[in-house]
Design a protein around this nucleic acid. Structure first.
Length: 589
RNA sequence: GGUUCGGUAGCUCAGCUGGAUAGAGCGUCAUCCUUCUAAGAUGAGGGCCAUUGGUUCGAAUCCAAUCCGAAUCACCA
């Protein structure tokens, strides 16, 4: 059931029959009719007026009559205003829609289900998660859910950046300053504990550089010569050589971090079918470099480093293997793409990664295509913008990061406070209350981060903590709870009898009918904000309806049953839409 | 400098496959709880859609130039 498509199709057919002009349904523009005009859907005639050499009035009348005949029982009348042909859809059509729709068939079955990988989260093990990671995690989860609603099979993966110089920095600082302390001793989450040593490293490094400069060294030289920096580099070398003591320390500190991450993931609801570790994957891709050399996709310079020339594609030359034979970032990613493809054999692979890596992913896809890897064409980069503070970018060194755990706790605390002050859930048990606060607090946070276009950078103002009114998660959760409360009183045992729909009832039916299109569009554009906006509009429309018309005290039994059915469908749609954002909706709040 | 992305109400954002009078939320002001959950609803106010030019019956939307902001152009990941 897709009325808009049928309208386009019929219009194309009618124009073809009337004037022998071939039109694709996609060329027909169908809009919802503006409220100030009569009708439900509007076809814009201007596009055809010129081509047919007919006035909009004449064309509108001829086309309108033909459409009446083409869609009997659906289109009941039409009118023409300037170049706009407005159709009124029959009451029976919308009544049948309400009657035939159930919470279980809100979305059609998948036509071509695919197997899709979503890689997201991808943390570093030297510092705790912050607001930017939350955007990443929520986006990744949401995209996975949206794709599942479409009927696809989804495999969620995570690549952990667990090696490299930044990890060594935390390790050195721990050796120097910790006196053998563990997260247990300081009662800290492991990721915060390790993150603190990363900060301590940077403080020590800065102090050393300042001291060296004071003793007469140039800034540039001091930055290279700072002893702690040299120690970190030496440690990286030892790590790469497999020095047992270093490896042991590395494993130990990473285990603390993972414990912390797991707590956070559990709290915010992130999970993965498979986690890859860069310490295992960083040597991948070497055989592919050899293959690429043989295929002449790559070339070798005199110093024996290996490159690819992408200038023909509008990009630069890019190194894929160092002169010492080691892999670079891009090489690993090529290797990992191949490994993932072999392991899961997916039709597509979506990488949820910040937009600072746009260039990287362009190069990655291009190289994979040139190597003719099976994974190549399925690579999609879901690029999202940074979360900024009103003062600008978050910088860990300047202490301006918004910590993920802190923010989550704050949101839950606010939801607790608000819930208590409203006093509507006095009969809840302590466990139920805890769950409710989590649901609302996380709902507010997730909705806030998902309601804007992922591509765009967004501003988060910690001073004006996230809202619970208006275009927010709690507003929609509240609307859902409100409907459920009504349905508990009226019951859901209904017997639908056809009746004339009031404008608000019809509007709700129309809004409900677009849900599948919204999910499809969100899936195609990898944009959960489309779903956020839709659920908000639906909830808002229901609230208007609620203020105007009574369900339990409806004018008649037919109306009461009809509105109960609408309530059931709206609640179910809100629930599904919000679940696509990773947000639960309470029965009561 | 090259490439890419952005600039819409005081603030945060929709709208951008060209269509009727540019929309929400927050904030401000004013109304509505003896009646299904007021985390709600209704109304008011708020706009040279960065600028200039072009294409078109019609431009916030497409094209060009300019201004402003961001990312990137690493043998870091």
């Amino acid at each position: 059931m897709n009325l808009i498509f049928n309208l386009k199709q019929s219009t194309a057919n009618c124009i073809n029959n009337l004037y022998s002009i071939q039109l694709q349904p996609e060329q027909v523009l169908v809009n919802a009719t503006k409220p100030e005009f009569e009708g439900d859907y509007t076809i814009v005639l201007f596009a055809f007026v010129k081509q047919l050499g007919k006035s909009p009035e004449v064309l509108g009348n001829e086309l309108g009559e033909a459409m009446l005949a083409a869609m009997p029982g659906i289109i009941t009348k039409f009118n023409i205003v300037k170049g706009f042909l407005n159709f009124t859809i029959s009451n029976a059509y919308w009544f049948d829609f309400i009657n035939a729709t159930t919470p279980d068939n809100l979305l059609p079955a998948a036509k071509h289900p695919r197997k899709i990988m979503v890689e997201y989260s991808s943390p570093n093990t030297n510092k705790p998660l912050h607001l930017g990671h939350l955007r990443n995690n929520f986006l990744g989860w949401s995209i996975a859910e949206i794709l599942k609603l479409q009927g696809n099979e989804v495999v969620k993966t995570c690549i952990v950046n667990d090696r490299g110089i930044h990890i060594c920095k935390s390790m050195i600082a721990w050796q120097l300053f910790a006196n053998g302390a563990t997260p247990n001793d300081t009662k800290q989450k492991g990721d915060h504990f390790v993150g603190d040593y990363y900060v301590k490293y940077n403080d020590a490094y800065k102090a050393e550089v300042t001291a060296l400069v004071a003793s007469g060294m140039t800034q540039e030289l001091a930055e290279k010569e700072a002893p702690i920096q040299k120690a970190a580099q030496a440690m990286l070398l030892k790590w790469e050589q497999g020095d047992p003591e270093t490896i042991e320390l590395w494993k130990h500190m990473n285990s603390w971090v993972y414990e912390g991450f797991n707590t956070t993931y559990k709290k915010i609801g992130s999970d993965f079918a498979k986690t890859y570790y860069e310490s295992n994957t960083y040597l991948l891709g070497k055989e592919l470099v050899e293959q690429g050399l043989n295929k002449k996709v790559f070339y070798q310079k005199e110093d024996s480093s290996v490159w690819i020339d992408l200038t023909a594609d509008g990009l630069d030359e890019k190194i894929v293997r160092r002169k010492d034979g080691t892999s670079v970032y891009i090489t690993q990613d090529i290797g990992l793409a191949e490994v993932k493809q072999k392991e899961f054999n997916t039709d597509a692979s979506i990488y949820v990664v910040g937009d600072e890596q746009n260039y990287h992913f362009k190069v990655l896809k291009l190289i994979c295509q040139k190597l003719q890897l099976p994974a190549a064409d399925g690579i999609f980069h879901l690029s999202y913008g940074m979360v900024e503070l009103p003062t600008g970018k978050m910088k860990s060194r300047e202490g301006t990061v918004v910590d993920a755990d802190d923010l989550v706790e704050e949101m839950i605390a606010i939801s607790k406070e608000k819930t208590e002050s409203l006093g509507k859930v006095s009969e809840f048990s302590q466990d139920q209350l805890t769950e409710l606060y989590n649901t609302i607090g996380l709902g507010a946070l997730k909705f806030f981060l998902l309601r804007v276009d992922p591509k765009k950078k967004m501003v988060f103002n910690p001073e004006e903590s996230i809202d619970f009114h208006g275009f927010t998660g709690p507003f929609i959760q509240y609307t859902h709870a409100r409907i459920k409360s009504i349905l508990r009183k009226t019951g859901t045992d209904i017997n639908l009898v056809a009746s004339e729909l009031l404008p608000l009832e019809k509007q709700l039916a129309i809004e409900l009918s677009t849900f599948p299109d919204v999910i499809n569009e969100a899936a195609e554009t990898l944009d959960p904000s489309k779903v956020a906006i839709y659920t908000f509009n639906l909830a808002k429309l229901f609230n208007t309806f609620y203020a105007e018309l009574s369900i339990s005290n409806a004018e008649s039994e037919e109306k009461k049953h009809l509105r109960i059915k609408l309530g059931i469908l709206i609640a179910a749609t809100l629930q599904k839409g919000m679940s696509a954002l990773g947000i639960a909706v309470p029965e009561k709040m």
